[in-house]
Design a protein around this nucleic acid. Structure first.
Lengths: 239, 239
DNA sequence: CGGCTCTTTGACCTTGCTCAATTCGCGTGG
DNA sequence: CCACGCGAATTGAGCAAGGTCAAAGAGCCG
């Protein structure tokens, strides 16, 4: 089985054989993480970064009163805390939403890669830059869209990102996310998320049963979400 | 006058002489930009990145109906669109809030730096990683804080960041931002922002007259904002 | 069957939004 | 020095999106 991070990278640029081997090496220390356990904890200063090979995870921040905010979703092929390479301390935790296969990549190795493989280093950098672009889209959605628009945006993004790694097609995909999780990602209350999802269902925009999401009316969803996948940089070009 | 980007970098790690010279070279093509004009436009594919040497700028996204969302503030010493080095197209614009001095740094030069100066390349990478960390904090604030908390968080962050480049001290700083701009950054309405700022004033937490902000009660502001500057990575260490 | 988590519903509240008008600060031209 | 214009700040009134609290279903597993 090839490392899904390869899909993510090759979608954005061509890789040399040496680089492909590196990616494979990144996935060579697979480890299982149980659903609902933390992959990384706020305050940690990890000595390796965690590549998600399979499963679903979320970055989250805990507030003083215990409320949570999810600031990112992570799927197979995401280099979940690549940024910890250059940070002193994690300012957030990462939760496994399902059982996950992850591979730890030593910071020493990553640092060496930045010294010896400049193009590949730029690809790593690119991964974190795309993360930031996603954050910005979430900010726009949170700040200026209705709850329906915000959730629609989220689902469109999940579809496009899962599609990259072959986990979504025909506007269908698995999304093992409770409405409580979704409300933490949207910054809304569970009750309101529930009602909004029901509204999207009633409008025949989506079907969402258990873990299975089906976007029934993509153009309409794209419209209410003002979704444009440009920010995901899905073009293969020299970087 | 030294390039303020040097302050930002040296606050996070030691630089070699060669690296310091590079930073100076980055600031060697200063150019004036008029207040209220765009420094970068959505859809552009720039061939250089823009380093802000003086002035205030904001990244913003425009929605279908013309409403705006500001996703980041930029001050002197910020490498405003460094990420455009690896992106195909800008997914947002950058607006000069005041007259600005900027310096364009050619992508060719930046790419060369990633080939020949790995440590310095990591410092550039770090800049974009800190941007992302700031985005995450904005997401948390937008999603889970009250409007007062959100504005307080914004002001605390501005203070800390301006302090790095010597533009803030004693909990005072210049912030040339209209309440309309602020509302676009917070994802709130102008009216509500106005009332919230007045409330902060009435509580004697801040003084804000014209462009002058004074945080009167830092501990209280930090508390309602749940502000912890950890995410700004203000420690000088090997990266 | 019992327990657990997740979804759904109802009732009521509160935060924040919209619209519209007024006021303030400040620079300009007379 | 004063009237005028203009953008920004402020205010009031009414509304709506979204929050809270509490309880009731549903689905699933042991």
């Amino acid at each position: 089985m090839t490392n899904p991070y390869l899909f993510a990278l090759e979608r954005r640029d061509r890789l040399t054989e040496v680089e492909k081997n590196l990616v494979e090496r990144f996935g060579s220390r697979p480890r299982l993480i149980e659903a609902r356990s933390d992959i990384v904890r706020e305050g940690d200063s990890p000595r390796d970064s965690c590549l998600l090979l399979s499963g679903f995870a979320a970055r989250y921040h805990v507030l003083a009163d215990g409320r949570r905010q999810i600031s990112a979703m992570h799927f197979a092929g995401d280099f979940v805390d690549l940024h910890s390479l250059l940070l002193v301390k994690m300012d957030h935790s990462v939760l496994a939403l399902t059982d996950c296969t992850i591979s730890y990549v030593a910071h020493d190795l990553l640092r060496e890669v930045t010294e010896t493989q400049p193009h590949f280093a730029r690809m790593l950098w690119l991964s974190t830059i795309i993360d930031a672009a996603i954050h910005r889209q979430w900010l726009v959605a949170a700040g200026r869209l209705s709850s329906a628009g915000q959730i629609a945006h989220f689902l469109c993004e999940c579809y496009e990102r899962l599609n990259i790694v072959g986990l979504a097609a025909d506007h269908r995909f698995r999304l093992p996310l409770s409405q409580t999780d979704l409300s933490d990602a949207m910054g809304l209350s569970v009750v309101h998320v529930n009602r909004t999802v029901q509204e999207l269902r009633k409008q025949k925009l989506i079907k969402w049963q258990g873990e299975q999401v089906n976007i029934l009316d993509w153009p309409a969803m794209e419209a209410i979400a003002e979704f444009d996948p440009m920010y995901l940089n899905l073009q293969q070009r020299p970087r």
